[in-house]
Write a protein that binds this DNA or RNA. Sequence first.
DNA 1: CTGAAAGCGCTTACAG
DNA 2: CTGAAAGCGCTTACAG
Lengths: 334, 334
Amino acid sequence: MKDVAALAGVSAKTVSRVMHEVPSVAPDIAARVRAATLKLGYRPNLTASNLRRGDRRTHTIGLLLEDVSNPYSSAVHRAVEDYCRSHRMLVLAGSLDEDADRERALVRTLIERRVDGLIIMSAAKDHRWVVPEQLAGTSFVFIDREPSPIVADAVVTDNRSGAAAAVRHLLATGRRRLAYLGDDLSIATARERFRGFQDTMDTAGLPVDDRSVRHGLRTVEQAQQAAQDMLTTAPPEAMFVSQNLVTLGVLEVLHKSGRQHDIALVGFDDVPLGDILRPGVTVMAQNPAAIGLRAAELLLERINGDTSPPQVHTVPSRLVVRGSGELPAVAATP
Amino acid sequence: MKDVAALAGVSAKTVSRVMHEVPSVAPDIAARVRAATLKLGYRPNLTASNLRRGDRRTHTIGLLLEDVSNPYSSAVHRAVEDYCRSHRMLVLAGSLDEDADRERALVRTLIERRVDGLIIMSAAKDHRWVVPEQLAGTSFVFIDREPSPIVADAVVTDNRSGAAAAVRHLLATGRRRLAYLGDDLSIATARERFRGFQDTMDTAGLPVDDRSVRHGLRTVEQAQQAAQDMLTTAPPEAMFVSQNLVTLGVLEVLHKSGRQHDIALVGFDDVPLGDILRPGVTVMAQNPAAIGLRAAELLLERINGDTSPPQVHTVPSRLVVRGSGELPAVAATP
DNA sequence: CTGAAAGCGCTTACAG
DNA sequence: CTGAAAGCGCTTACAG
């Protein structure tokens, strides 16, 4: 900037004015400055400007996801990006892989870079550490899972009631021996979805066989293994599955063993190609785009000074009927 | 930092030393500073430190993708993130949606934030604008498509030869009337893949019917429409498809019309659930993880001062045989 | 309409 | 081992 000022024969302050398109600058001087700018390839240094500036905004937010390459996470990411773009903000994204230590470390480096706020799909179980950061001026919004205690806004899917609706949908076919395959119970969403399953089975007065409940499935491979075991030891009439990677594993096993028309299936969270398979894959679909959008809106409101008490916002899931959840009941078995 | 220094009764410089764990600081003083740090919830301001620092590194890179939520883009993203994480760098990601203006705008804001370098899946056709930015100290690596002229390193898939191999694979079944469905020819990868198709058909002395070539397919819906048209007007014996979204659309049409065992298919780029469908979907798979990793490695080398001439690095694609590309030849038609 | 001085939060280059 | 002064690139608050 000094160089530009020297070349244009003006003060630094005038260069600054031209860069910010302050109208009071004389046209000929502005032109001289712009010419110098081009000639020197000058690029304003936003971080320097930010240092002295009153509002202290970096116009950058952090987005901490489970995994940027997971379809759910990346759909959220895109929605956040779009909203941020229209508000001239940039997004620093990172993957947590369910690692709470990594979450703390990433939050720290992002705050050291002075992001204006953070949207977090949290791996942590206790979020009291958030409060001092809020007091120091960083805004937070949690997605997919609520913070505990509720120290900040959260945008979550109606996991429990959505799961319950999915299970009722399965029961409506007349099938009664249902299995549950799901993610690690330490993850709040998995817990809620399992509760929805459990609730509904209890209400219907149906027993849940221990051999028909599998937790801790984190990958397609683990889900395949679990589904394979279950088909061998205690094949159920229908399966409710908590998560898209698990659904993929289960589908693979059902189709490879030729039992896809035999065992009903509803998965939580949509899967790609779900309507091409035969039968189509019935799912309780989440709405990552709506979650990302709402989270970004809330975060910008907080950044802009909203200090109302934090709230949990629920985004409804939606049953997508494609066939696998509507297989007619099997003949009664003892 | 001033507050911390005051509370600990030391100078700012000593606080700085403690934060950077300079060993020469007396243990009792260091302890006092750390206590003050905790008490005040002090967080070092990395952007300020960066301003005065010699190396001028922000330890941040920009990653410009076609769409952060596209499976290919997000797999690249994850690989870049992993490499950057192990080198203490952060990633600012953005979606370009094939918009060259947006690319320029995003590059500009990222440079104003002083990223150390940029990895770009470029939408632009001319990249001469890169040179002045490089001279000003920003490093560039292009992925998926080479810059033109070759002003920076590029990491690309072997599109032309990969496509040629895919088409030869189809021809090996004995099928001869092949169709091509692909993305917009303004996109270099689509152009190269079409060339691979064309090359191989020419070499084999096979005519390519105009009605069997469709370009400009950018979405699943457009692909469905095109496939539908083609099945109606001039059904081919086999289809070669340039891109994963197009493959999804074509698959949907083939399966809905019940012709999935009738018309052979090889897609460029892998699709999810490709091995569950019947027949399984044979693809020429790209390797986005390898591309992202290599790009990140190259970028950090450039950031660290490598000034060797830019090179184009090719990452091989790999034929994944699953059934759709190996359907036995149909009875001869006139 | 334009500029000189001071300061943002930190580090460099010294001095002691 | 510790600190006072100067400066990174910009903006604020003022003066003219």
